[in-house]
Design a protein around this nucleic acid. Structure first.
Length: 936
RNA sequence: ACUCGGGUGGUGGAACUGGUAGACACGCAGGACUUAAAAUCCUGUUCGCAGUAAUGCGAGUGACGGUUCAAUUCCGUUCCCGAGUACCA
């Protein structure tokens, strides 16, 4: 009987759908398990073979856990708000809602063909008002909360108001607060809200007409499209994620993420411990406006000071100059008349440089301000410079420069001929800075003789004691920009009146996204919504016209799956208490610092506010590697005459013309033939470079090299999963993607091996239908040999599946079927169990054969077979011994060795021990003369 | 530059807490069945040398060195590739 995978798969997919076998209930006696995929953005291109990798991996896990007796939540949905749909709308005029709907339908049909066990009743779409109603609601929660610095958690802003009204704060008294105008109070509160609005410098992308988050800007250009990005001041929404910096760091200790993922998040948060300290400034002229007495000061009258941030207070005596960011407010106040023009010119120069310029050429620039700071410990006068290498946004925007210990400071000192003080003796060679902490300090006043790493805390204590500074922690991470001047996103439930943000009443949610006809930007950098006068102007005030960023909806979606239909709340506490954390979360590394940090923060806020009872969303994270496409580079020999060019070094190739092709046009010998080239042309049309074949020759391209690149249509290296499913079936496709290599590893896509997996499934099929007549199996008991194969396999597969080691699991299936085939095993008892452990990987064929064995119901509800260890016990334990000729032994008799051999034997420690206990080896097995296995 | 991964046959990749390196698959070569093809099955396949042959000898997990009876695995140095970050004081 033939293995008609297409029929079988269709049959079972329909049946499973009709019977709703994947429906999951929130009530069950079974333990729960939550397996989640990072939901996709439904792009117009549909799925390519890279997408399903993670989905297959999670699907296998979900099915495996179900067979193991868990109530498994394994949902799927769509992150359907986002820029590409809007970009497409701009170009074609099609409404994003339309294209999104179409794309989702495509995605779903593609996913269904692969046979995933999603409970589609729980599907969510972030662009659906029923969903974003709750995104808006959570936004309001963020808006109405503040981070309490003593309790280190989010609390309702009402608590803060109460405190201000009764006790005031360290900045104002209760009386003062109560006397403030509404606007003044709101401004103060805005500085504490977790979702807040402020004027800030944002990354403005003219071409996209929108503001981008820091992580959407790569090397000074937009991640999407590569358009230039400049700084612009605008009113923006932000999330106060910096308040959670420490908890986000601490939380990493409690979750099972890969070390590299944790490291990436740590780097992004960028915590550093140091000290902030003030240096008195000595100026020749005080440029500040006249004092109230109307007397401009010519010498230092009022104390001016410069606050710097440093992680190395131990190097305080090595400070040779100060550097202040050009944007620093103090610059104008301290520049001397002689230096004023130079300073102004330099500031103008820095302003003219875009981020791109700064990235491109990092040259040493700067300018002396004419002012001096005073070292509080030795009174030394230190010149103050400005330079663009000091960033206004980090620390205090000013540094103390220690050229003997810091490479950048060193170069700067060299460039401006600033004398360098050496405080680390021989550790500094005069050629380059040495950032060590191991040196013993010299020329360092009260720190002399101390090891630098010990001196840090000593210096900090002294600084604090003198009242000129404090210990301080800084983070690289900034508050996350939360508004976009775009259309296709969640509208903010906010109206503005008299420069005050007024939240919408919760009962008025969702604030639905109104229909627009044009997707172009509104005036003055507003989004398209700014053009809708009717919508924007309400009796309560003017609506916020920006929309939320892509990560808004994805920051909490894992909660909605638990209770997707709830109209009362975003997720009932009972549901979130039952399902709790996502046990396994599978997705790509590209979200390391975006989505994963934001969703972790939202979870912590919702936890603080008592909506859920866990503060980390994902217990375990598995990062699937990217499937890359292979591109092949060829060269046509004819171009350089008839000479066959031979290549020695790849670098020489650049002199020649190269061509790039999808791998499907290369034959097994790695050659691109004319025929393949022509079929390529007929499918894709013109390529970058046209090739002219010699008229009468069947010319050949010489293979030059191959490269793995990200899959994309423009690189002609995309394979569509539908085609493969049609040709080989979903089961083969699933197993093949897993067989390619470890899930977490990036690997090039190549269909060459898919035949092998397909052959395996056909072999399995034959085990049931071809080898014997009739029903194909017997009720007889399995033999020991058969049972040994079975239990060996169960043990291996069970372990591999639990560890996501799917590629070795697939291999184990192949070995198992080969061995059972050799044993001509047709025992129901055995085959049934093989099918159950196979079911997560190849559900369709497993179900079909399950019924062929006259089983009722569905294999999905079978029980995972237990390993019976008794079939696995080896007859005796073998201990290795090796020969090296060093040690004399007296075991030649027992071991039955020649005296020469015996002389060379050294026993492994364990064997020696047994030997001493009087247990002589029973048998010795020779292995390649090098090693001997001793049976005790 | 820094941080984190990773270097194993022609290819994708195996190898448990150190214990016969190369499982499984692709590819390739040869064979069986067939009028033929497809499909299927069998055999061989790390490299080098020797032999008609079963086989034997030597080398071998990026390179060099170390620990060990024994190293792909542990330690040190170094080279290469991939990912992330990028003037963060």
């Amino acid at each position: 009987m033939e293995y008609k995978f297409n029929e079988i798969e269709k049959k079972w997919q329909d049946k499973w759908n009709a019977d709703k076998v994947y429906k999951v209930s929130n009530e069950s006696d079974k333990p729960k398990f939550y397996v989640l995929d990072m939901f996709p953005y439904p792009s117009g291109a549909g799925l390519h073979v890279g997408h399903p990798l993670g989905y297959i991996a999670s699907d296998i896990y979900a099915r495996y856990k179900r067979l193991k007796g868990f109530n498994v939540l394994h949902p799927m949905g769509f992150d359907s708000f986002g820029l590409p749909a809007e970009q497409y709308a701009l170009e074609t005029g099609q409404h994003p809602a339309e294209t999104t709907k179409k794309n989702i339908a495509t995605f779903k049909s593609q996913l269904d063909k692969i046979g995933f066990c999603y409970d589609w009743d729980r599907e969510i779409q972030t662009s659906n008002p029923d969903y974003y109603k709750w995104t808006q609601k959570i936004f309001l929660e963020l808006f109405n909360s503040y981070f309490c610095n003593t309790q280190k958690k989010a609390r309702p802003i009402a608590d803060l108001v109460k405190k201000y009204e009764t006790k005031g704060s360290d900045k104002f008294t209760a009386e003062q607060w109560n006397a403030y105008s509404k606007k003044e109070q709101e401004d103060i509160l805005m500085n504490r809200r977790l979702a807040f609005s402020k004027y800030g410098e944002v990354n403005w992308c003219e071409a996209l007409g929108t503001v981008l988050a820091n992580d959407e800007v790569v090397n000074g250009v937009s991640e999407r499209g590569g358009h230039p990005v400049v700084k612009k001041k605008m009113r923006q929404w932000y999330l106060r994620i910096t308040s959670y910096a420490d908890r986000l760091l601490e939380g990493l200790e409690t979750v099972d993420f890969s070390e590299s993922m944790k490291e990436m998040q740590r780097n992004w948060i960028g915590r550093s411990e140091g000290a902030e300290m003030d240096f008195a400034i000595k100026v020749t002229t005080d440029n500040r406006p006249p004092t109230t007495e109307g007397q401009p000061s010519s010498v230092v009258h009022r104390p001016l000071s410069l606050r710097v941030y440093t992680t190395r207070p131990d190097t305080i005596f090595g400070v040779d100059f100060m550097v202040v960011a050009p944007e620093h407010e103090l610059v104008n106040e301290i520049k001397s008349p002689e230096q004023a023009t130079a300073v102004d010119e330099y500031v103008a120069y820095v302003k003219s440089r875009s981020d791109v310029d700064r990235m491109a050429e990092k040259k040493i620039t700067g300018c002396f301000t004419g002012a001096f700071a005073v070292n509080p410990f030795d009174g030394k006068e230190i010149p103050i410079y400005i330079s663009e290498y000091v960033l206004a946004g980090y620390g205090t925007g000013a540094i103390m420069a220690v050229p003997c210990g810091d490479e950048r400071d060193f170069k700067f000192a060299q460039h401006f001929d600033i004398p360098i003080t050496n405080i680390i003796g021989d550790f500094y060679n005069g050629e380059e800075a040495n950032p060590t902490k191991e040196a013993t300090l010299q020329n360092s006043g009260f720190l002399n003789g101390l090891l630098m790493k010990d001196a840090i805390s000593v210096a900090v204590s002294k600084i604090e004691e003198m009242g000129i500074g404090i210990k301080k922690v800084n983070y690289k991470m900034r508050d996350a920009g939360f508004s976009r001047q775009r259309y296709w996103g969640e509208p903010f439930p906010i109206v503005w009146k008299d420069e005050m943000a007024i939240p919408l009443n919760e009962n008025d949610l969702p604030l639905e996204l109104p229909h627009v006809d044009k997707y172009g930007p509104g005036k003055e950098g507003e989004g398209p919504l700014g053009n809708l006068e009717d919508w924007v102007n309400t009796p309560e005030g003017r609506r916020e016209t920006s929309t939320m960023p892509g990560y808004a909806g994805s920051s909490w979606y894992f909660l909605r799956y638990m209770d997707p239909k709830n109209a009362e709340t975003f997720c009932d506490k009972k549901a979130s208490d039952y399902w709790n954390q996502v046990d396994v979360y599978i997705g790509g590394t590209e979200h390391a610092v975006g989505h994963l940090l934001y969703s972790r923060m939202w979870t912590k806020v919702l936890y603080d506010l008592g909506y859920i009872s866990f503060d980390e969303p994902f217990k375990k994270l598995v990062n699937q590697g990217m499937i890359t496409g292979k591109s092949y580079f060829f060269m046509l020999d004819h171009i350089y005459g008839n000479k066959i060019v031979t290549y020695t070094k790849p670098t020489e190739l650049s002199a020649f013309i190269r061509f790039k092709y999808g791998h499907q046009f290369v034959d097994n010998n790695g050659k691109l033939t004319r025929k393949n080239y022509e079929s390529f042309q007929s499918i894709y049309g013109g390529v970058e470079e046209q090739i002219s074949w010699e008229n009468d020759t069947e010319g050949e391209f010489i293979f030059v090299k191959e490269e793995s690149e990200k899959m994309s249509k423009s690189k002609f290296n995309v394979d569509n999963p539908d085609d493969l499913v049609l040709k080989y079936g979903a089961d083969t496709f699933r197993m093949y993607e897993m067989f390619l290599g470890p899930v977490e590893q990036s690997k090039p896509w190549d269909t060459k091996g898919i035949e092998g997996v397909h052959r395996f499934l056909r072999k399995l099929w034959r085990l049931f239908f071809d080898d014997i007549k009739g029903k194909g199996w017997t009720d007889a008991k399995g033999t020991d040999a058969e049972l040994k194969v079975l239990h060996k396999t169960i043990k291996k597969i069970d372990g591999d599946t639990a560890n996501f080691s799917y590629n070795t699991a697939v291999s184990a299936f192949m070995v198992c079927v080969n061995e059972l085939g050799e044993l001509k095993c047709h025992k129901k008892e055995i085959l049934e169990k093989v099918l159950i452990i196979l079911a997560p990987y190849a559900p369709h064929i497993a179900e079909e054969l399950w019924h062929a064995l006259e089983n009722k119901g569905t294999i999905l509800d079978a029980a995972y077979p237990a390993v019976e260890e008794k079939y696995l016990i080896e007859s005796s334990k073998e201990y290795p011994v090796s020969i090296n000729g060093k040690m004399r032994t007296t075991i030649n008799m027992a071991l039955d060795l020649s005296p020469e051999e015996a002389e060379k034997i050294v026993l492994a420690n364990e064997v020696v021990q047994k030997w001493l206990e009087g247990k002589a080896p029973k048998k010795v097995i020779y292995v390649k003369n090098k090693m001997v296995n001793v049976v005790i």
